[in-house]
């Protein structure tokens, strides 16, 4: 297994159009575009279904069917229907990313305890306030988990962009295979694997920053007496 291509400084030049920095940027670009569109589609739907409880069965079944769709096949279908370019690649990656985001958004919102939602309603919050200020913050760890899962799959699969004539890290894999330069294939695969792990770590960090300490248990070591009234004011229950 030769690492020559990976370790060759010339391939890491910032200005080279087919160097690693440029290819990584392209790869991240396809990934971010697809994830953003998928989140814009799947998050509101998941939120609505989770909040109202309506249409859950359809969403779950569509999500499962989407999971079974091979992305390569979707890409080929889109290439045949739309033609070559960024659009078919993005559609294929969006189709890949929607099921995990939709399913976890729905599951996260559903996991919020009923009494919490009832309490929010009881203090006079509107339905959209309940959704945005109560359900979403509590469901956030699960929702971000789905986003991590989706980005992992999209980063892995964005290699197909190269198969459709675009750039990204897939270039090294397919060009290397076509010209039988295995060290180029190895380099592409190693950079891709490291990129996937790094993105997952970054999102894990983002999860810690975004999720309220009161939700994920980090706030649990605070002494309860300093934060809350020690006794309920009245117990009518």
């Amino acid at each position: 297994m030769s690492l020559d291509y990976l370790l060759d400084a010339a391939n890491w030049s910032l200005t080279s159009p087919d160097g690693f920095p440029q290819r990584i940027l392209e790869h991240l670009g396809y990934t971010a575009l697809a994830l953003a569109i998928a989140a814009l589609v799947a998050f509101p739907i998941g939120l609505l279904i989770g909040h109202t409880g309506r249409g859950a069965l359809i969403a779950i079944n569509l999500g499962n069917a989407g999971r079974a769709l091979p992305t390569l096949g979707v890409l080929m279908l889109m290439l045949a229907l739309v033609g070559i370019g960024l659009v078919p690649v993005t559609i294929a990656l969006v189709v890949l990313a929607i099921p995990p985001i939709l399913a976890t958004t729905y599951a996260g919102i559903r996991s919020v305890p009923d009494e919490t939602v009832d309490a929010a309603r009881g203090v006079g919050m509107t339905e959209s306030q309940i959704a945005w200020r109560v359900e979403v913050p509590i469901a956030l760890p699960i929702i971000i988990g789905g986003l991590r899962n989706a980005s992992l799959q999209v980063v892995s699969t964005a290699t197909i962009a190269a198969y459709a004539g675009l750039g990204g890290l897939g270039r090294y894999l397919f060009d290397g295979l076509a010209t039988l330069q295995y060290d180029q294939v190895v380099a592409g695969a190693v950079v891709l694997a490291v990129l996937a792990v790094v993105i997952d770590l970054v999102l894990a960090g983002a999860q810690r920053l975004l999720v309220s300490p009161g939700v994920d248990g980090r706030g649990a070591d605070n002494s309860p007496t300093t934060n809350r009234p020690a006794e309920p004011i009245s117990s009518t229950a």
């Binding site: 892995s156 294939v185 592409g188 695969a189 694997a193 996937a196 792990v197």
Partner: peptide, 23 residues
């Protein structure tokens, strides 16, 4: 979870180098 993070296409292409099998 680390194994699960490695992209399938990357793993498919790296395994021959590790195992000595043909691509």
């Amino acid at each position: 979870s680390v194994v699960y993070t490695v992209p399938s296409l990357a793993l498919l292409l790296l395994l021959p180098g590790v195992l000595g099998t043909s691509v």
